[in-house]
């Protein structure tokens, strides 16, 4: 691990004008997303509960109409080879389902029904003045941390080595593999891990 540089300090401040702009894009899109969730009351337990009790179709229709609007537009923009200001050429991720998708999705649904919230609405729940947001938000962080912790342990067994690099190579892309919906870090981490592995080869 001697080739790996120590953690560099992270700051909320920007390094270049482009970083500042991207940070402001993040803040703007977060605000609009949180605002839309609040405007349809998705931050309330009762809304999610009524949806999963099949009492009202509103949330299903909301999700379906969001996809119905965005899917064709994204398809056209990708086909047109659009170049984005911050992220290069617009590209869509289309992975095939694997066992961890189904297992993770099944667990997520159970927790979603019990807690009556999910990651984005939990933040809005707290800003609406709901005190139990202080329970659900830390819970989500603990859940994410537990998986990272657990998968590291499991994979150490699978790989048959306690070696730091090997664990990083196999764990990092899996832990942060939010390729389809979340942040795209998996491929970047895999590339970095490959680089590290090459550097450490005898």
């Amino acid at each position: 691990m001697s080739t790996h540089a120590g953690p560099s300090p992270v700051r909320l401040g920007a390094k270049s004008p482009k970083t500042t702009k991207l940070n402001m894009v993040g803040l703007l899109f977060g605000t609009l997303f949180g605002g839309i969730l609040a405007s349809v009351r998705l931050h309330e337990y009762d809304t999610i509960h009524a949806m999963l009790r099949l009492d009202e179709p509103d949330v299903y229709l909301l999700m379906a109409s969001a996809v119905a609007v965005s899917a064709p537009l994204l398809w056209l923009l990708e086909r047109g080879g659009m170049h984005t200001p911050f992220g290069g050429r617009l590209s869509l991720s289309r992975s095939m389902p694997e066992a961890h998708h189904l297992k993770g999705g099944a667990l997520f649904g159970v927790g979603w029904a019990i807690a009556g919230t999910c990651p984005a609405p939990a933040l809005v729940m707290l800003s609406s003045g709901a005190t139990l947001g202080l329970v659900s938000i830390p819970g989500i962080f603990v859940g994410l941390w537990l998986f990272r912790h657990n998968s590291e342990r499991q994979l150490r067994v699978e790989v048959g080595s306690g070696d730091g690099e090997h664990r990083e190579i196999h764990v990092a892309p899996l832990t942060l593999d939010l390729t389809d919906g979340g942040l795209r870090t998996g491929s970047t981490l895999a590339k970095e891990a490959d680089l590290r592995m090459t550097q450490n080869k005898p």
């Binding site: 961890h100 998708h101 927790g111 990651p119 989500i140 859940g143 389809d180």
Partner: peptide, 19 residues
């Protein structure tokens, strides 16, 4: 609520995303 949130966080990490 805490247990539900932990389960959904764990599931989201495993599945690679949430709602």
């Amino acid at each position: 609520v805490f247990a539900g949130a932990v389960i959904l966080g764990y599931g989201a990490a495993m599945a690679g995303g949430c709602t």
